[in-house]
Write a protein that binds this DNA or RNA. Structure first.
Lengths: 148, 148
DNA sequence: ATATAAGTTAAACTCGAGTTTAAGTCAAGA
DNA sequence: TCTTGACTTAAACTCGAGTTTAACTTATAT
Protein backbone atom coordinates (compact mmCIF):
# COMPACT_ATOMS: atom_id res chain seq x y z
CA UNK A 1 0.00 0.00 0.00
CA UNK A 2 1.27 3.45 -0.98
CA UNK A 3 0.23 6.79 0.48
CA UNK A 4 0.56 10.42 -0.58
CA UNK A 5 2.05 12.90 1.83
CA UNK A 6 -1.43 14.13 2.79
CA UNK A 7 -2.68 10.65 3.65
CA UNK A 8 0.50 9.96 5.57
CA UNK A 9 0.14 13.20 7.51
CA UNK A 10 -3.39 12.20 8.46
CA UNK A 11 -2.50 8.70 9.65
CA UNK A 12 0.41 9.98 11.74
CA UNK A 13 -1.24 13.16 12.95
CA UNK A 14 1.58 15.35 11.65
CA UNK A 15 1.45 18.37 9.30
CA UNK A 16 2.72 17.73 5.78
CA UNK A 17 5.32 20.43 6.35
CA UNK A 18 6.87 18.30 9.07
CA UNK A 19 7.04 15.26 6.80
CA UNK A 20 8.78 17.31 4.10
CA UNK A 21 11.13 18.69 6.72
CA UNK A 22 11.96 15.17 7.96
CA UNK A 23 12.54 14.06 4.39
CA UNK A 24 14.96 16.93 3.81
CA UNK A 25 16.72 16.01 7.05
CA UNK A 26 17.33 12.48 5.77
CA UNK A 27 14.90 10.73 8.07
CA UNK A 28 13.02 8.90 5.32
CA UNK A 29 15.55 6.83 3.37
CA UNK A 30 12.97 4.38 2.05
CA UNK A 31 10.45 6.86 0.78
CA UNK A 32 10.08 6.77 -3.00
CA UNK A 33 8.77 9.18 -5.61
CA UNK A 34 6.07 8.75 -8.22
CA UNK A 35 6.88 9.33 -11.89
CA UNK A 36 5.58 12.88 -11.46
CA UNK A 37 7.91 13.59 -8.53
CA UNK A 38 5.41 13.14 -5.71
CA UNK A 39 6.44 11.47 -2.48
CA UNK A 40 5.04 7.96 -2.12
CA UNK A 41 5.08 6.56 1.40
CA UNK A 42 4.84 2.87 2.23
CA UNK A 43 4.16 0.91 5.41
CA UNK A 44 7.91 0.76 5.89
CA UNK A 45 7.95 4.55 6.16
CA UNK A 46 5.17 4.49 8.73
CA UNK A 47 7.21 2.18 10.91
CA UNK A 48 10.26 4.34 10.30
CA UNK A 49 8.40 7.45 11.40
CA UNK A 50 7.11 5.70 14.50
CA UNK A 51 10.70 4.92 15.44
CA UNK A 52 11.63 8.53 14.77
CA UNK A 53 8.84 9.57 17.13
CA UNK A 54 10.01 7.10 19.76
CA UNK A 55 13.61 8.28 19.56
CA UNK A 56 12.51 11.90 19.68
CA UNK A 57 10.45 11.19 22.81
CA UNK A 58 13.51 9.53 24.28
CA UNK A 59 15.42 12.80 24.00
CA UNK A 60 17.42 12.35 20.79
CA UNK A 61 17.89 15.28 18.41
CA UNK A 62 16.90 14.97 14.75
CA UNK A 63 20.59 14.87 13.82
CA UNK A 64 21.19 11.93 16.14
CA UNK A 65 18.11 10.23 14.74
CA UNK A 66 19.41 10.72 11.21
CA UNK A 67 22.60 9.00 12.25
CA UNK A 68 20.59 6.02 13.48
CA UNK A 69 18.47 5.95 10.33
CA UNK A 70 21.60 6.00 8.21
CA UNK A 71 22.89 3.01 10.16
CA UNK A 72 19.77 1.03 9.37
CA UNK A 73 20.49 1.56 5.68
CA UNK A 74 24.05 0.31 6.10
CA UNK A 75 23.05 -3.21 7.08
CA UNK A 76 24.40 -5.71 9.56
CA UNK A 77 27.75 -4.04 10.12
CA UNK A 78 26.06 -1.47 12.35
CA UNK A 79 24.13 -3.89 14.58
CA UNK A 80 26.45 -3.35 17.53
CA UNK A 81 26.23 0.41 17.40
CA UNK A 82 22.48 0.31 17.01
CA UNK A 83 22.16 -2.00 20.01
CA UNK A 84 24.41 0.28 22.05
CA UNK A 85 22.27 3.24 21.10
CA UNK A 86 19.04 1.57 22.22
CA UNK A 87 20.62 0.43 25.48
CA UNK A 88 21.62 4.02 26.18
CA UNK A 89 18.12 5.24 25.26
CA UNK A 90 16.72 2.69 27.67
CA UNK A 91 18.69 3.98 30.63
CA UNK A 92 18.05 7.60 29.74
CA UNK A 93 14.31 7.09 29.47
CA UNK A 94 14.31 5.23 32.77
CA UNK A 95 16.06 8.22 34.32
CA UNK A 96 13.58 10.61 32.75
CA UNK A 97 10.65 8.62 34.14
CA UNK A 98 12.20 8.78 37.57
CA UNK A 99 12.67 12.54 37.26
CA UNK A 100 9.07 12.93 36.13
CA UNK A 101 7.93 10.96 39.15
CA UNK A 102 9.73 13.38 41.46
CA UNK A 103 8.16 16.25 39.59
CA UNK A 104 4.78 14.59 40.07
CA UNK A 105 5.38 14.26 43.81
CA UNK A 106 6.16 17.97 44.01
CA UNK A 107 3.04 18.82 42.07
CA UNK A 108 0.91 16.60 44.30
CA UNK A 109 2.33 18.36 47.33
CA UNK A 110 1.37 21.70 45.78
CA UNK A 111 -2.14 20.42 45.05
CA UNK A 112 -2.52 19.53 48.71
CA UNK A 113 -1.02 22.90 49.66
CA UNK A 114 -3.53 24.87 47.61
CA UNK A 115 -6.47 22.66 48.56
CA UNK A 116 -5.63 23.38 52.18
CA UNK A 117 -5.19 27.06 51.40
CA UNK A 118 -8.52 27.12 49.60
CA UNK A 119 -10.32 25.52 52.54
CA UNK A 120 -8.74 28.02 54.93
CA UNK A 121 -9.07 31.01 52.64
CA UNK A 122 -5.37 31.81 52.91
CA UNK A 123 -2.03 30.26 51.94
CA UNK A 124 -0.60 31.13 55.33
CA UNK A 125 -2.40 28.15 56.85
CA UNK A 126 -0.57 25.43 54.90
CA UNK A 127 2.57 27.62 54.70
CA UNK A 128 2.95 27.85 58.45
CA UNK A 129 2.29 24.20 59.23
CA UNK A 130 4.98 22.29 61.04
CA UNK A 131 6.23 19.01 59.62
CA UNK A 132 3.96 16.97 61.94
CA UNK A 133 0.84 18.60 60.51
CA UNK A 134 1.77 17.89 56.90
CA UNK A 135 0.52 14.54 55.62
CA UNK A 136 3.29 11.95 55.54
CA UNK A 137 3.13 11.51 51.76
CA UNK A 138 4.02 15.15 51.07
CA UNK A 139 6.86 15.63 53.53
CA UNK A 140 9.65 14.49 51.22
CA UNK A 141 8.45 16.71 48.39
CA UNK A 142 8.31 19.69 50.70
CA UNK A 143 11.82 19.00 51.95
CA UNK A 144 13.14 18.84 48.41
CA UNK A 145 11.68 22.29 47.74
CA UNK A 146 12.60 24.16 50.88
CA UNK A 147 16.19 24.86 51.80
CA UNK A 148 18.24 22.16 53.43
CA UNK B 1 21.19 34.08 54.26
CA UNK B 2 21.87 36.03 51.06
CA UNK B 3 23.70 34.84 47.96
CA UNK B 4 25.30 36.50 44.94
CA UNK B 5 24.29 35.37 41.50
CA UNK B 6 27.46 33.27 41.26
CA UNK B 7 26.77 31.40 44.50
CA UNK B 8 23.18 30.91 43.46
CA UNK B 9 24.23 29.55 40.10
CA UNK B 10 26.48 27.05 41.82
CA UNK B 11 23.87 25.81 44.28
CA UNK B 12 21.28 25.37 41.56
CA UNK B 13 23.62 24.07 38.86
CA UNK B 14 22.56 26.76 36.39
CA UNK B 15 24.70 29.29 34.49
CA UNK B 16 24.49 32.87 35.72
CA UNK B 17 23.23 33.89 32.29
CA UNK B 18 20.15 31.75 32.84
CA UNK B 19 19.46 33.37 36.22
CA UNK B 20 19.71 36.84 34.67
CA UNK B 21 17.46 35.72 31.85
CA UNK B 22 14.87 34.38 34.31
CA UNK B 23 15.05 37.63 36.25
CA UNK B 24 14.42 39.62 33.08
CA UNK B 25 11.48 37.33 32.30
CA UNK B 26 9.90 38.15 35.67
CA UNK B 27 10.47 34.79 37.30
CA UNK B 28 12.17 36.17 40.41
CA UNK B 29 9.78 38.64 42.03
CA UNK B 30 11.36 38.35 45.48
CA UNK B 31 14.96 38.84 44.48
CA UNK B 32 16.45 42.06 45.87
CA UNK B 33 19.40 44.24 44.95
CA UNK B 34 22.33 45.41 47.03
CA UNK B 35 23.01 49.13 47.36
CA UNK B 36 25.49 48.75 44.52
CA UNK B 37 22.90 47.20 42.22
CA UNK B 38 23.96 43.57 42.56
CA UNK B 39 21.35 40.84 42.69
CA UNK B 40 20.94 39.35 46.16
CA UNK B 41 19.19 35.99 46.29
CA UNK B 42 17.58 34.56 49.42
CA UNK B 43 16.29 31.11 50.38
CA UNK B 44 12.91 32.23 49.16
CA UNK B 45 14.37 32.61 45.68
CA UNK B 46 15.89 29.15 45.84
CA UNK B 47 12.47 27.67 46.54
CA UNK B 48 11.00 29.84 43.82
CA UNK B 49 13.52 28.57 41.30
CA UNK B 50 12.87 24.98 42.31
CA UNK B 51 9.21 25.54 41.56
CA UNK B 52 10.16 27.09 38.23
CA UNK B 53 12.19 23.98 37.47
CA UNK B 54 9.29 21.73 38.45
CA UNK B 55 6.81 23.61 36.30
CA UNK B 56 9.24 23.63 33.40
CA UNK B 57 9.66 19.85 33.71
CA UNK B 58 5.89 19.56 33.74
CA UNK B 59 5.73 21.13 30.29
CA UNK B 60 4.90 24.77 31.05
CA UNK B 61 6.51 27.57 29.02
CA UNK B 62 8.39 30.37 30.77
CA UNK B 63 5.54 32.74 29.94
CA UNK B 64 3.04 30.45 31.66
CA UNK B 65 5.39 30.13 34.60
CA UNK B 66 5.63 33.90 34.87
CA UNK B 67 1.86 34.04 35.04
CA UNK B 68 1.90 31.61 37.95
CA UNK B 69 4.70 33.53 39.70
CA UNK B 70 2.77 36.75 39.32
CA UNK B 71 -0.24 35.08 40.94
CA UNK B 72 1.81 34.14 43.97
CA UNK B 73 2.64 37.83 44.41
CA UNK B 74 -1.02 38.74 44.26
CA UNK B 75 -1.99 36.89 47.40
CA UNK B 76 -4.98 34.84 48.41
CA UNK B 77 -7.30 36.02 45.69
CA UNK B 78 -5.50 33.73 43.24
CA UNK B 79 -5.62 30.54 45.31
CA UNK B 80 -8.32 28.98 43.16
CA UNK B 81 -6.50 29.62 39.92
CA UNK B 82 -3.24 28.34 41.34
CA UNK B 83 -4.93 25.17 42.56
CA UNK B 84 -6.52 24.66 39.16
CA UNK B 85 -3.14 25.08 37.52
CA UNK B 86 -1.49 22.44 39.70
CA UNK B 87 -4.37 20.03 39.18
CA UNK B 88 -3.94 20.42 35.44
CA UNK B 89 -0.15 19.95 35.77
CA UNK B 90 -0.82 16.79 37.73
CA UNK B 91 -2.92 15.20 35.02
CA UNK B 92 -0.55 16.31 32.28
CA UNK B 93 2.49 14.90 34.03
CA UNK B 94 0.63 11.65 34.64
CA UNK B 95 -0.10 11.48 30.92
CA UNK B 96 3.52 12.23 30.09
CA UNK B 97 4.72 9.43 32.37
CA UNK B 98 2.34 7.04 30.65
CA UNK B 99 3.64 8.11 27.24
CA UNK B 100 7.22 7.67 28.41
CA UNK B 101 6.38 4.19 29.60
CA UNK B 102 5.13 3.28 26.14
CA UNK B 103 8.29 4.75 24.66
CA UNK B 104 10.29 2.63 27.08
CA UNK B 105 8.43 -0.51 26.01
CA UNK B 106 9.26 0.24 22.38
CA UNK B 107 12.90 0.78 23.25
CA UNK B 108 13.05 -2.46 25.22
CA UNK B 109 11.62 -4.28 22.24
CA UNK B 110 14.33 -2.76 20.05
CA UNK B 111 16.99 -3.80 22.57
CA UNK B 112 15.75 -7.37 22.33
CA UNK B 113 15.60 -7.04 18.55
CA UNK B 114 19.23 -5.95 18.25
CA UNK B 115 20.46 -8.40 20.87
CA UNK B 116 18.87 -11.16 18.83
CA UNK B 117 20.32 -9.69 15.64
CA UNK B 118 23.75 -9.48 17.23
CA UNK B 119 23.64 -13.12 18.31
CA UNK B 120 22.60 -14.17 14.81
CA UNK B 121 24.87 -11.81 12.96
CA UNK B 122 21.98 -10.37 10.99
CA UNK B 123 18.83 -8.34 11.58
CA UNK B 124 16.89 -10.62 9.28
CA UNK B 125 16.67 -13.22 12.05
CA UNK B 126 14.58 -11.12 14.49
CA UNK B 127 12.93 -9.30 11.59
CA UNK B 128 11.48 -12.45 10.08
CA UNK B 129 10.23 -14.01 13.31
CA UNK B 130 6.55 -14.77 13.59
CA UNK B 131 4.61 -13.52 16.56
CA UNK B 132 4.92 -16.87 18.39
CA UNK B 133 8.70 -16.63 18.40
CA UNK B 134 8.77 -13.13 19.85
CA UNK B 135 8.83 -13.06 23.65
CA UNK B 136 5.43 -12.24 25.09
CA UNK B 137 6.59 -9.00 26.72
CA UNK B 138 7.59 -7.43 23.40
CA UNK B 139 4.59 -8.35 21.28
CA UNK B 140 2.50 -5.31 22.13
CA UNK B 141 5.37 -2.92 21.41
CA UNK B 142 6.00 -4.57 18.07
CA UNK B 143 2.33 -4.31 17.17
CA UNK B 144 2.30 -0.62 17.98
CA UNK B 145 5.20 -0.10 15.58
CA UNK B 146 4.17 -2.22 12.62
CA UNK B 147 1.14 -1.42 10.56
CA UNK B 148 -2.28 -2.46 11.74
C1' DA C 1 -10.77 20.73 -21.30
C1' DT C 2 -10.53 22.84 -17.30
C1' DA C 3 -11.04 24.02 -12.61
C1' DT C 4 -9.64 22.60 -8.24
C1' DA C 5 -7.18 20.19 -4.86
C1' DA C 6 -3.04 18.45 -3.58
C1' DG C 7 1.55 18.21 -4.45
C1' DT C 8 6.65 20.34 -5.45
C1' DT C 9 10.85 23.51 -4.25
C1' DA C 10 14.01 26.92 -2.06
C1' DA C 11 14.25 30.38 0.93
C1' DA C 12 12.67 33.12 4.47
C1' DC C 13 10.48 33.31 8.73
C1' DT C 14 9.05 32.04 13.67
C1' DC C 15 9.47 30.68 18.36
C1' DG C 16 11.26 29.39 22.81
C1' DA C 17 14.98 29.25 25.54
C1' DG C 18 18.72 30.57 26.37
C1' DT C 19 24.10 32.33 25.40
C1' DT C 20 27.49 35.60 24.05
C1' DT C 21 29.49 40.01 23.58
C1' DA C 22 30.99 44.59 24.66
C1' DA C 23 31.46 48.15 27.52
C1' DG C 24 31.32 49.32 31.85
C1' DT C 25 30.70 48.99 37.55
C1' DC C 26 31.36 46.97 42.19
C1' DA C 27 33.81 44.50 45.92
C1' DA C 28 37.78 42.49 48.29
C1' DG C 29 42.52 41.70 49.22
C1' DA C 30 47.53 43.24 48.84
C1' DT D 1 45.34 52.80 45.72
C1' DC D 2 45.26 49.41 42.58
C1' DT D 3 44.39 45.04 40.66
C1' DT D 4 41.55 41.27 40.02
C1' DG D 5 37.44 38.82 39.86
C1' DA D 6 32.65 38.99 40.00
C1' DC D 7 29.08 41.68 38.85
C1' DT D 8 25.93 45.03 35.67
C1' DT D 9 23.32 46.13 31.11
C1' DA D 10 21.44 46.06 26.33
C1' DA D 11 21.74 44.03 22.23
C1' DA D 12 23.07 40.65 19.20
C1' DC D 13 23.59 35.98 18.41
C1' DT D 14 22.64 30.77 18.44
C1' DC D 15 20.18 26.55 18.03
C1' DG D 16 16.67 23.13 17.19
C1' DA D 17 12.59 22.23 15.27
C1' DG D 18 9.69 23.27 12.60
C1' DT D 19 6.24 26.70 9.60
C1' DT D 20 5.20 29.87 6.01
C1' DT D 21 5.52 31.84 1.55
C1' DA D 22 5.77 32.22 -3.40
C1' DA D 23 6.01 30.42 -7.61
C1' DC D 24 5.17 26.43 -9.87
C1' DT D 25 3.55 21.27 -11.23
C1' DT D 26 0.69 17.12 -10.93
C1' DA D 27 -3.51 14.65 -10.26
C1' DT D 28 -8.55 14.29 -10.09
C1' DA D 29 -13.39 15.11 -10.89
C1' DT D 30 -16.78 16.98 -13.78
Amino acid sequence: MLYTIGEMAKTLGLPTSTLRFYDKKGLLPFMERSSGGMRMFSDKDIECLRIVECLKQSGLSLDDIRHFIRMTTEGDSTIDERLAMFLKRKSEVEAQIEAMQKTLETIKYKCWFYETAKAAGTTSVPASMGVEQIPQEFRKAKERLTCK
